[in-house]
């Protein structure tokens, strides 16, 4: 049976995934909008940077983040001069790492959905007296809804399964930065297969249910498929 520590790890994992997804939707939407509509010829550079976490070993990403966020890193050092705690080995540090790690899973579906919407509905909105901002919220976002759903579910599910980045920048502090995937690893290391089964099962069911709802819902919307 899972112990209280296991449930704490589950709670931290869900919290991390939820906060990360929320931040990514807020940051990713304008970014995806810009990428979908800009005619800037070097757009591909930005797209490659965003896609990096898809191919980079998470430990590499985690390593660089650790350097940057640690007390001697550029960001960590800057924070220390202001009298703030460095972010490495904190929950906030985990959120930052997760945002980078899951960025492509949120930006790409939204970008594809905005592209699929195209210019025409926005032009139509303009001829119907809607300002560009008005048209963005009342036409572009509703029409790109399936993309947002995909982005939210993929961002959330991908953050749930995070391991390498967390291990590098979050360490393994129970009750603070110990997430489910690391707890499972710990149990296996300690030969506690029963508890590892419980946690793995939970993660498996959770991920499956989320993906299934996504596919079921997106079939109904039928505009965009992953």
């Amino acid at each position: 049976m899972p112990t209280e520590a296991d449930f704490t790890a589950l709670a931290i994992t869900l919290q991390l995934a939820a906060i990360t997804t929320l931040i990514l939707l807020l940051l990713g939407t304008p970014l995806a909008w810009w990428l979908a509509r800009t005619r800037w010829r070097y757009r591909f550079v930005i797209e490659s940077v965003i896609a990096l976490p898809l191919v980079l070993p998470p430990t590499v990403l985690g390593f660089y983040l650790l350097i940057a966020l640690g007390p001697n890193g550029p960001i960590g050092g800057l924070m220390q001069t202001f009298g703030w705690q460095p972010l490495a080995f904190t929950f906030t540090g985990l959120v930052i790492g997760s945002v980078f790690y899951s960025l492509p899973f949120v930006v790409q579906p939204i970008q594809a959905a905005f592209k699929a919407v195209g210019d025409r509905p926005l032009e139509v909105a303009a001829t119907l007296r809607a300002s560009p901002l008005d048209a963005f919220f009342t036409v572009a976002i509703p029409l790109a809804k399936p993309g947002f759903l995909t982005a939210a579910v993929l961002g959330f599910a991908h953050t749930l399964g995070e391991f390498g980045v967390v291990l590098m920048i979050g360490g393994n502090i129970p009750g603070e930065t110990q997430v489910l995937s690391i707890a499972i690893y710990e149990h296996v290391e300690a030969l506690e297969y029963g508890r590892a089964h419980w946690l793995s099962g939970m993660l498996l069911v959770l991920s499956f249910v989320m993906l299934m709802s996504l596919y079921a819902l997106n079939r109904r919307f039928s505009l965009f498929r992953t």
Binding site: R120, V124, A125, A126, T127, L128, V139, L143
Partner: peptide, 20 residues
Amino acid sequence: LPTHRRALGYVFQEASLFTH
């Protein structure tokens, strides 16, 4: 003067209704 501030109506060649 941007399009949304011009007192015009526009009918496009192909279907342009908002599907949502």
